[in-house]
């Protein structure tokens, strides 16, 4: 059982590499951390080491895409953002078939602290025309979504954490661009992405004990957002809550707020961060500190509904 985002990614990439000889992988000297080292071992001739230079890596991936390859670029999410302008001006502007798949997003790199934790990337990627933004909820989701990401023609940002990936699915049947409805509810709708999908499920169970009926949606594709499913489910409840391991500004919460305020004004709580992280010996202390736990969300929902 793989319960790690990066392990799931590293292995899935090798499997897809067997099927599709056009996949090439670029690395900025973090292959052992991102697990693209597995791809290097399997296909050394399709693995390109650029050294610690994310900007060069992203633009080079653009060149490889122009040359007909399907380049997969991986790094720590925070440091891939160093190449945001290259992503904007070359990859997104020219609609190149480059797959940007970082690991270590959110708080998942707990030890390394605020420099390495990435709480802004969804906002930075979502704002770019042509870019698709995907955030898998758990390890089994990774190969399912990765296959579709590779098959999709055009630039994609697929955001992964490091190891902690509590299981949501046994054998997920996920479709890129289509929200996955995990639970129906009549009082509250919890819309979550990434690790926070499991927190949303736990929140829903706790709310149920308190007599509050909560639905849960895994919004694994943040752009394009499945507005149809969101609006259909939001219509049935009084309160919508977004949950993400990311800033409440511009990410999933921002995307949902934009849709609801224009099409179906509704009370909304955005669960996420508003400040930089900090180093911690364990990951869960960070989730607790920043209010990303079921207990914390339950309290906020109760306050809002009473």
């Amino acid at each position: 059982m793989i319960e790690s985002f990066r392990e799931a990614f590293g292995r899935a990439l090798v499997e897809l590499g067997e099927e599709n000889p056009n996949i090439v992988v670029l690395d900025a000297d973090v292959k052992s951390s991102t697990k693209t080292a597995y791809f290097e071992r399997a296909f050394p001739e399709r693995f390109i080491q650029v050294g610690i230079s994310e900007q060069d890596m992203v633009s080079m991936a653009g060149g490889l895409a122009i040359g007909g390859k399907i380049p997969v670029v991986s790094a720590f999410a925070a440091f891939l953002m160093r190449a945001w302008e290259q992503i904007r001006n070359t990859i997104a502007r020219d609609n190149l078939n480059v797959k940007l798949i970082p690991t270590h997003s959110g708080f998942s790199d707990h030890m390394d602290g605020s420099s390495h934790q990435c709480l802004e990337d969804i906002a930075l990627m979502r704002v770019l025309p042509n870019m698709t933004v995907v955030v898998p909820a758990d390890a089994p989701s990774v190969p399912v979504l990765l296959k579709q990401v590779i098959e999709l023609e055009g630039p994609v940002y697929m955001r992964l954490g490091r190891d902690h990936a509590p299981r949501v699915y046994d054998s997920p049947k996920l479709k890129l661009g289509k929200a996955s409805v995990l639970r129906k509810g009549s009082d509250v709708l919890l819309v979550a992405a990434g690790v926070m999908v499991s927190v949303a499920l736990e929140t829903a169970r706790k709310l149920e004990e308190r007599g509050i009926s909560a639905g849960v949606v895994d919004m694994h594709t943040i752009k394009p957002l499945d507005e149809e499913t969101l609006l259909r489910l939001a219509a049935k409840v009084d309160l919508v809550v977004t949950l993400e391991e990311h800033s409440i500004h511009g990410g999933l919460g921002g995307a949902v707020a934009e849709v609801l305020s224009e099409k179906m004004p509704k009370r909304l709580i955005r669960i996420g961060t508003t400040e930089f992280g900090r180093s911690s010996r364990d990951y869960f202390s960070l989730l607790e500190r920043y209010g990303l736990t079921a207990e914390s969300v339950v309290k906020k929902v109760e306050v809002m509904l009473t």
């Binding site: 122009i66 040359g67 001006n89």
Partner: peptide, 25 residues
């Protein structure tokens, strides 16, 4: 024109990528 420019400093990296793809094929 295979790639847009206007932002400086990116063309050589793109050239390397194209050259690499050619060599692989």
């Amino acid at each position: 024109i295979e790639v847009s420019s206007g932002s400086l400093g990116q063309g050589l990296s793109v050239a390397n990528g194209i050259a690499m793809a050619k060599r692989m094929d």
